[in-house]
Each structure stands twice: as structure tokens, then as C-alpha cells.
């Protein structure tokens, strides 16, 4: 899958309370969650983000709560991919489980700047900066995760596994 979009850049340790504050967790509607995405880090973000945009974070992106509302809010806001130096583990699993593309790539996370446009080949983990010189390669996914990604999320994967068992 090919992605092309403009970068929104955030710092280290972006926690799930910044991604979607708990005061909005009284709903599971993706559109409502998206309307408050990143509100406490950048109140303008949810209104400004364009479909296809790429979010970039530093280390430990998505730390904190297990709320799946966080990747749901990012995905529903139109973000096509999140690139970070490292991801907190629950966020990492959640993103894959719901089909939000993520790439772990410290070099890209550090070099990419707000407003740069990037082209991403998700299958190959390749990130190319179209605004300034720079090409990066993300870490490959563990084999289980690759299968989940190929089946477009965990629930389809589980359905297959249940069929195998039956």
C-alpha cells in the first residue's frame, strides 16, 4: 500500500491522554473521538488535519492507557500512518489490531519535519521525503503482526483461526 501525505510532528512520550483525553471516552463513535484527537497537545490539530496526513512522534509514542480509542481517533481523523522512534507496547498492538498503519523508524522520526510531504511504501517499510532529501527504512513487524496486517486486523485473523480449529 502506498501512502502520500504531509507530516504533523509531535515530540517524545506522546501519551494516550494527549491523543484522546479521557473526558471524551464516554463514546466509542470514531467520528466523535476524531473531533478531539490530540486536543491537549495541539487544539488546532483535529480541525486542520487533512485526510492522508502522516503523524510523526519521538520515542515511546502512545504511552499510558490501553484505550484503543487512541488509535481509533487518529485513524478516524484521517491520518494514514504514524511514524515514531519507538511505540509504547499496548498502542503498538492496538494500532495493528484496528488497521492503523504504523512504522517504527528512529531515523525518520528525527529527520522528518512538520509540513514535509512523504511517500510511504507500507509493505516494504520505506519512507521517502519528497520535500527534502531523505529515505528511511522502518523496522519489520514480528511475524504474527504481519499476518494480522495482511488480514486487515485482529478480528479477521481470529475468525480464520476459529475456522482452523473447528
Amino acid at each position: 500500500m502506498q501512502i502520500k501525505g504531509a507530516i504533523y510532528k509531535f515530540g517524545d512520550d506522546v501519551d494516550t491522554d494527549q491523543i484522546i483525553p479521557a473526558r471524551y471516552l464516554n463514546t466509542i463513535d470514531p467520528a466523535e473521538l476524531a473531533a478531539h484527537c490530540m486536543e491537549d497537545a495541539d487544539p488546532e490539530f483535529a480541525g486542520a488535519v487533512q485526510p492522508g496526513s502522516v503523524m510523526v512522534g519521538g520515542k515511546n509514542f502512545g504511552c499510558g492507557s490501553s484505550r484503543e480509542h487512541a488509535p481509533i481517533a487518529i485513524k478516524a481523523a484521517g491520518v494514514s500512518c504514524v511514524i515514531a522512534a519507538t511505540f509504547a507496547r499496548i498502542f503498538y498492538r492496538n494500532a495493528v489490531n484496528i488497521g492503523l498503519p504504523i512504522l517504527e523508524c528512529p531515523e525518520a522520526a528525527s529527520a522528518l519535519q512538520e509540513g514535509d510531504t512523504v511517500e510511504i511504501d507500507l509493505a516494504k517499510g520505506q519512507i521517502k521525503n519528497l520535500t527534502r532529501p531523505g529515505e528511511y527504512k522502518a523496522a519489520p513487524f514480528p511475524s504474527f503482526m504481519q499476518k494480522i496486517i495482511e488480514q486487515d486486523g485482529l478480528i479477521n485473523f481470529v475468525q480464520e483461526r476459529m475456522k482452523e480449529r473447528a
Binding site: 490501553s66 484505550r67 488509535p71 498492538r93 492496538n94 489490531n97 486486523g153
Partner: peptide, 10 residues
């Protein structure tokens, strides 16, 4: 350990 809702559903 903590997981998200989809892992929990599975």
C-alpha cells in the same frame, strides 16, 4: 498485562 479492546475481544 494490559491490552487494548480488540485483543480483549479475541
Amino acid at each position: 498485562t494490559g491490552v487494548g479492546s480488540t485483543d480483549l475481544a479475541a
